[in-house]
């Protein structure tokens, strides 16, 4: 039992440290200017953390504005556009297929008329 508690404590500690590290990275990243990479990869990671944090705040605001639902973000809007395009294509196809069926039936009707008139 003590081992399990120890494991969970280790997990909590890692989580806490990661959280602190994350906050520090966000703060450092927020202070960087675009293209500022003096410290190399570390600056890049900090900058990325700041960007992700800003996106997280935007998502929080969207969720709050939508009363808990997910408001359309740029990615969601792209997905919706793609879904709409696919749905439109499917309906267009159904319509064209229907036209094909009608053309074929019309041909049969015309052929029967021609046979009767012969």
């Amino acid at each position: 039992m003590r081992d399990v508690l120890r494991f969970l404590a280790a997990w909590a500690l890692v989580h806490e440290s990661a959280d602190e590290g994350w906050r520090a990275a966000v703060t450092r990243g927020a202070g960087l200017s675009p293209g500022d990479l003096e410290r190399g990869p570390d600056d890049f990671v900090d900058g990325l953390a700041a960007l992700v944090d800003a996106e997280k705040e935007r998502l929080k605001r969207d969720l709050a504005a939508d009363g808990g639902g997910v408001a359309p973000t740029e990615g969601a809007s792209d997905r919706r556009d793609a879904d709409l395009t696919a749905a439109l294509e499917a309906v267009r196809f159904d319509l064209a297929e229907l036209r094909g069926r009608i053309e074929s039936l019309q041909t049969s009707v015309d052929a029967l008329h021609a046979e009767r008139d012969d």
Partner: peptide, 9 residues
């Protein structure tokens, strides 16, 4: 592609 004006059963 099918030419439906020239297609029947």
């Amino acid at each position: 592609a099918v030419v439906w004006t020239h297609t029947t059963r």
